[in-house]
Design a protein around this nucleic acid. Structure first.
Lengths: 115, 115
DNA sequence: CAGAATCCTGAGGGATACTG
DNA sequence: CAGTATCCCTCAGGATTCTG
């Protein structure tokens, strides 16, 4: 698609940046990294975004190949989201991200303690 | 500042997301991770952004405590940018990010090969 | 050299309402 | 349940120009 044209030949950092630029991308990848989830369940984990926003974010991640969407043809609808292969590999980044994020929050507290 | 209020108490992932949301944050951190640099030198490494944009991105990173700005009071001006302590710790994330970004680009090529 | 000051624009995110 | 379809609106990013 168009996304591929944009990303081709770019450096890994810029590529990563693009894919992760969605406001909720990281959170979604984190939750799907724990387990495959249905739309509703995922939404309950992320109370701060609306259905429409969640849908858009999921579509974007799917188009970029990070997650997979499995539709069960039944009524009522059932749709499961899970990490793709490359999505699973992203977990390693998430681990470091979590560690660093924790450290970062600590530095903020320190600043607040002695102003 | 206001940034602290926003970030306080949030999960590490959301915190990280906020700090890295700048379009060029990762690239800048990567370059400054290699060495301390002056404004002009940094700009030469990143030919795709204008001075004003680079300035804004640097200000944002500085406000978030990721980089440090050292001003030499002389004429013509000399300003050096470097990673702060917490900025240095971010290198670990960058490493994983680079690896994953490379893998991701590979998956794109695979898709292109057999459409 | 390393910026500050303006101005502008688009797209990403959100709110709301409707549906198979 | 898991979406679509609209509308709206902010604001990050960029272009441009001027400066100590």
């Amino acid at each position: 698609m168009e996304a591929e044209k944009d990303l081709f030949g770019k450096c890994p950092y810029m590529t990563a940046q693009k894919v992760l630029s969605g406001k909720w991308s990281i959170m979604i990848l984190y939750h799907l990294g724990k387990k495959t989830m249905r739309f509703g369940e995922l939404q309950r984990q992320l109370p701060d975004l609306t259905q429409s926003t969640l849908t858009k974010q999921l579509r974007a991640l799917e188009e970029n190949g990070l997650i997979e969407r499995k539709i069960y043809p039944q009524v009522p609808p059932k749709v499961e989201y899970s990490l793709s292969d490359i999505g699973i590999k992203f977990k390693k980044v998430l681990v470091e991200l979590a560690i660093w994020g924790g450290e970062y929050i600590e530095t903020l507290k320190d600043k607040a303690d002695r102003p």
